[in-house]
Design a binder for these strands. Sequence first.
DNA 1: AGGAGCATGTAACTAGTTACATGATTGT
DNA 2: ACAATCATGTAACTAGTTACATGCTCCT
Lengths: 183, 183
Amino acid sequence: MALEHAILVSLAERSASGYDLARRFDASIGNFWKASHQQIYKVLARMEADELVTSEAVAQEGRPDKKVYAITAAGRSELAAFTATPTGPEVLRSDFAVKLRALPFGDRDAIVASVRRRRADHAAQLAEYEASAARFYPDPEAVPADHLGAWLVLRGGIRAERGGLEWCDEILQSLGEDRRAAR
Amino acid sequence: MALEHAILVSLAERSASGYDLARRFDASIGNFWKASHQQIYKVLARMEADELVTSEAVAQEGRPDKKVYAITAAGRSELAAFTATPTGPEVLRSDFAVKLRALPFGDRDAIVASVRRRRADHAAQLAEYEASAARFYPDPEAVPADHLGAWLVLRGGIRAERGGLEWCDEILQSLGEDRRAAR
DNA sequence: AGGAGCATGTAACTAGTTACATGATTGT
DNA sequence: ACAATCATGTAACTAGTTACATGCTCCT
């Protein structure tokens, strides 16, 4: 149910249309929660019925009209209440790990190719996060209080990507594929 | 759809009942894929209809009878085919990160408590993985070929837990809670 | 007497995915 | 002419969760 809460955080930071939210979920928020636009519209409708958010129609010229959603007082207290609930263990679902574990029963070359692709993805994502960090938080000792959460999550993203990258390197090395990988 | 494939890997390693699979999903497989017993029974039934697995009733004394599932030839080729498909980007869903990002809108002490709990969970899981590694793979240079996938996944688990632990420490330090955390 | 472990499920529900639909504007 | 971006959705489906049901054995 935390898609709701991810949307509330995003709207607490800044009001937005469903479309805007979908783009944020492709970028910064998507760093820890992925959601499709269809799912977002569905959940927004429910949240509006529950009065966690309100919407206002905004006419635009040269572009389709949009509905801008804003968090309500009830939404803010729901979000605060959420932060006070204990967090259960994270639900893991990694296709990549399933494939890796299937190594003795599968296509070794294809798996190596997957590892290489994944390594490249981690490297690209890491570069993107590091660019964001350098741009928005040039001085890590002086992060504004209202950005502390976002900063810490970004730091987590950087760590996760770096960790994933190193894991890929270890895998390639174990499989004796590190020379080709380094090319 | 990769729960199916996670089950196939598990059955390729060794035939098992639904109950056994559920326990494996709590332990080794659960390291990268979580599933409840209800979901497992449901998927097993579908997989049997699709002839990816077969079941055999086994009577037991002093215990309820069980159905032992085994992978079929079709199951093995499905698993091999799966390893050859490209892996999409991982779907992330982290309640913890949502909470952390909600820091400016939430209950700071409760969030700090969450971080501490999570740190302890990572430490416990890490210890468990390291114990498994020491026990089953005392010589990392000589991992048998049929265990290479399992070993690499375990290595990934160790890296992920260590990374998560370090992230928690960084968060506590940023929040000025590291002294109390170290106690 | 009560709880944990073994063992398999059903029923009702919520969450999320995939495919499709519409229609204007801007850029190649 | 075609694709991309803006913008919002519906419909049909699959996956996963939560709650409940049953019953036997072994341990405290």
